[in-house]
Design a protein around this nucleic acid. Structure first.
Lengths: 337, 337
DNA sequence: GTTGGCACTAAGGCATGCCGAGTGCTAACT
DNA sequence: AGTTAGCACTCGGCATGCCTTAGTGCCAAC
């Protein structure tokens, strides 16, 4: 019983099952792949694979389907990442050009990825802790309500309404703004909390309280950009692959809606040497995703944010991984250094 | 055959069907509701209702289920809007207090509504065309790239990166900002496009091109706030009511994702005297929603934006309408005039 | 280590028959 | 005229049983 052939058999099973959705048997295998041996031999190999926990039979007399572990081995050792077709590459390129607003770029990207893979695509907003403060604006909305706006040099804008505690004149607010801005311009968002106290304590006591409130607001904004949000697209694809995991579509939607879950999942995924991370079935920390796989990769100037897709474990990993990787690369290029 | 009793029968059918999910027959009806007549009489009434197209039998020997038209009559004439329970009211109130950021409020609201109704909830961002420009900021990101930020007195912030066409010094940009701001402060967003040309033509020729680019950017931002976005929550509830319309969940997700579809739908819905609009099944302009109903109402200071829910036609209209209306009222109160 | 053969197994498809829920109609009742 | 009881009829749903089919595991032979 040759080891290489066993792997070949596993590969064949995965590939056939992925696109037939049906348990694959020994006879069908020898017919569809020229393995050079008889079905009986394959049966022996399959029995061995089953012993190793790589495949399983849903019932006595059916073919085999890959287990999570089987997919894992397939992804890690057997499959080669398929390159995208030139038309696909062109599509990506042309779609992503001609927009420069961050929200817009991410939105287009995630839609494109979901179409490309026929799965749900998600993208995390880029981390900004290294981004620097470009501008600060305080706008008096109501007697005590101030809109605090923070603009980073990456083009990201964060805003928040805060209550300064007592009435504040327009020019006093302008003064505070100048003061904050003078000290804070160029400060990386990540260092915001270290610099703010000094600014506040330098303010005249009359406005100390307001300054403190404003500083708190700014700090929250700075954290917002770290705490991250995400965009997704293609949830309808879940329903299409309905046939696969009809029961679990609910939990999956919940997971997607609870962005925290997805964000944690994405950030915990370790990339393999090929630059793509795959999390299969029960490998996922979240129970609702027990029958789903996530394929993700990092992107952006400092490769900290993630982009990826979520689909049934029964998915075409090579193609999907290729798509995710390609889209991430284009995205990185667009966002520039 | 008494007309009032016929309506009573329709009401009973709708109510029973809504919570049993099964066609309801004449005998079951007389048992569960004290109608004071025999099942044979009900059968006659039902035959009449069927002739009028208000109910239909899925097959020869099954009970009847309401048609879209039947639901319509039920909603319009029969049902009374049920008041929410005090605990529910308290829940709404306490959840919505203690946040003043617009995004945050809408997000909480929509989650609450989806939990309350067990449906998908959607909320449209409030219209801002009557909001006034509070502040404008130009930030030079790269030699020719300028981030245009527009802050409205409602607390809404819009931003966009634009290409000004040629290099621009920091102080020149500051000059332009002052100029724009002087003219535009206090202008309602809706009138932006009428005022901008005058500002541009007043700029010195050297910076005319840049000013024009900036003006275009501002105009787009002004339109953005009209063209509206929406937030949603509770898509997982779709899967729960899986059993009802398993086939159509795909199209529904698509409709939700294509925000344009939903926004148009919401804005086209006319409210009835009770202040709630209901669109049932095929009444919906979008085909994917043929088996879904939308219950929505206006909210906000000038009652232009919409909030509502989307669910299967087989839904508990009275309770749902009450929830939507109540949440909309609280939301209006929070946003204040 | 590979192969062919054979007994065995469970699922899926299909016909059959039966039950129950529900209808429509008619004739009688109030 | 409206209401009711009764009855024949119609399907859907479910259980039953049968057959076919795809697949396995094992063994003896190559």
């Amino acid at each position: 019983m040759s080891e290489p052939r066993k792997l070949e058999v596993l590969r064949a099973i995965v590939e056939d099952y992925v696109h037939s959705r049906e348990p694959v048997g020994s006879k069908a295998l020898v017919e569809r792949h020229h393995l050079g041996v008889s079905s009986a031999t394959i049966r022996n190999d399959m029995a061995a694979l089953e012993d190793e926990g790589l495949i399983t039979a849903p019932h006595t007399s059916a073919g085999r389907i890959p287990t999570d572990k089987g997919y894992r081995l397939f992804v890690d050792q057997i499959s080669a990442v398929k390159p995208l077709s030139p038309p696909e590459r062109r599509a990506i390129q042309s779609l992503l050009e001609g927009s420069d607003d961050l929200d817009d770029v991410l939105d287009r990207t995630v839609r494109m990825l979901s179409q490309l893979t026929n799965q749900v695509a998600v993208v995390q907003y880029p981390h900004l802790s290294r981004a620097q403060i470009r501008h600060i604006e305080f706008v008096l909305l109501a007697p005590r309500k101030v809109l605090v706006v923070l603009i980073a040099d990456s083009g990201k804008v964060e805003q928040r309404v805060i209550d300064v505690g007592h009435d504040l004149a327009d020019d006093a607010l302008a003064g505070l703004r100048t003061r904050f801005l003078a000290t804070l311009a160029g400060t990386p968002l990540g260092r915001l909390s270290m610099v703010l106290p000094a600014v506040v304590s330098a303010v005249a006591p009359v406005h100390r309280q307001a300054a403190q409130a404003l500083a708190n607001g700014l700090e929250i904004l700075g954290q917002n950009s770290r705490e991250e949000r995400m965009v997704m697209a293609g949830t309808a694809n879940l329903a299409r692959s309905n046939v696969d995991f009809p029961l679990s579509i609910g939990p999956v939607l919940e997971a997607l809606e609870e962005q925290v879950v997805m964000l944690r999942l994405l950030s915990e995924m370790a990339q393999d040497p090929r630059g793509v991370a795959v999390s299969i079935g029960r490998e996922n920390p979240y129970d609702g995703l027990a029958e789903a796989s996530v394929v993700a990769t990092a992107y952006g100037p400092d490769s900290t944010a993630k982009i990826g897709i979520l689909g049934p474990t029964r998915m075409d990993y090579p193609t999907t991984m290729a798509a995710v990787r390609a889209v991430a690369r284009y995205l990185s290029r667009i966002l520039g250094p």
